[in-house]
C-alpha cells in the first residue's frame, strides 16, 4: 500500500480508534484503539511475517504491481477502479476491507459543491450547481468511480448505484453502513494537522525510526496545539 493517510488511517479506525477524539477537538492517535490498529499495521509491514514492503513514496506495493500481476491484493479507493477495469489481463474484483478489533471500517468520501455566500453572481452560480448535480452529470461522475451523488433525486441515486466502475458495487454499498466520514466533519486545518503532524510521524513508523507509541505521542504533541 502507499503511505496515503486514508490507508494508515484505515488501520487506526479498524483497530477501534480514530484520528481525532469524539468531538474532534484533539488528536486521537494515542487512544488504545488507535494504538492497536497502528501496531497491527506496523507488525504487518515490519514484523517477522512482513507481508509486503513498507509504504513510502515509491516503496510499498500498489496499482503498478497489481496491474503487473506481482501482488494479489491491495487497498485503494473506488475512484481508482475505472483504470483497473481497463486492465483485462486477469480477472479481479473488489471486496470489503477485513474486519478489525474495532469492527468493519472504511472511509466515506463525497464531493460537496458550495456557493460562496458573498458571491456577486448567485444566480449564475446556482445555474452551474444545478448542471453539476443533474442526474446526467452525476452519472458521468459516478462512471469515473468518484463521489456519492450530491443530488438526492432518485435518478441521480440510480445513476450512481447502477454505475459499474467495478463489476460489483456491493462492497461499496455495504460499506456505506459503517463508513467513517472524517474530513467533511473536521473543521480544523487538515493539512496542518494530518499532513504536517500525523504523516511525518507515521513515516517514522514505516522507516523503523519510532515505535507506534512514540510516533503517536509525537503526532499528538505536535497536533494538539493546532486544534481550534
Amino acid at each position: 500500500m502507499s503511505d496515503w493517510w486514508g490507508l494508515w488511517g484505515w488501520f487506526v479506525y479498524s483497530g477501534g480508534g480514530s484520528l481525532f477524539n469524539a468531538d474532534r477537538t484533539a488528536c486521537g492517535l494515542t487512544e488504545p484503539g488507535s494504538i492497536t490498529g497502528l501496531q497491527f499495521m506496523a507488525d504487518l509491514f515490519l514484523g517477522p511475517d512482513r507481508v509486503a514492503p513498507p509504504p513510502g513514496l515509491e516503496g510499498g506495493v500498489g496499482e503498478t504491481e497489481f496491474h503487473a500481476g506481482t501482488v494479489g491484493m491491495f487497498p485503494n479507493g473506488r475512484w481508482m477502479t475505472p483504470s483497473d477495469r481497463a486492465n483485462d489481463a486477469f480477472d479481479w474484483a473488489v471486496v470489503e476491507m477485513p474486519k478489525g478489533p474495532g469492527g468493519n471500517a472504511t472511509w466515506l468520501f463525497w464531493g460537496a459543491y458550495v456557493i460562496n455566500a458573498q458571491t456577486e453572481y448567485p444566480q449564475q452560480a446556482w445555474t452551474v450547481l444545478k448542471a453539476l448535480t443533474s442526474p446526467d452529470v452525476q452519472a458521468q461522475i459516478a462512471a469515473l468511480g468518484t463521489n456519492i451523488p450530491s443530488n438526492k433525486a432518485q435518478a441521480a441515486v440510480d445513476a450512481f448505484l447502477n454505475s459499474k466502475p467495478p463489476a460489483d458495487n456491493t462492497p461499496f454499498i455495504n460499506g456505506a453502513a459503517y463508513a467513517q466520514a472524517e474530513i467533511p466533519l473536521f473543521t480544523g486545518n487538515w493539512n496542518d494537522i494530518v499532513g504536517g503532524q500525523y504523516q511525518p510521524n507515521i513515516d517514522k513508523i514505516f522507516a523503523g525510526l519510532a515505535t507506534v507509541q512514540e510516533a503517536a505521542q509525537a503526532a499528538c504533541d505536535g497536533a494538539n496545539p493546532l486544534f481550534k
Binding site: D3, L57, G195, Q199, P200, N201, A207
Partner: peptide
Amino acid sequence: QGGPANSTLTIVYYLYQKGFQR
C-alpha cells in the same frame, strides 16, 4: 514532497506548503 518524516522538508518547500496548500 518534503517527506518521508519531513526529512527533505526545506524552508522554501515549507513556505509553499503553508502559503499555497494550507
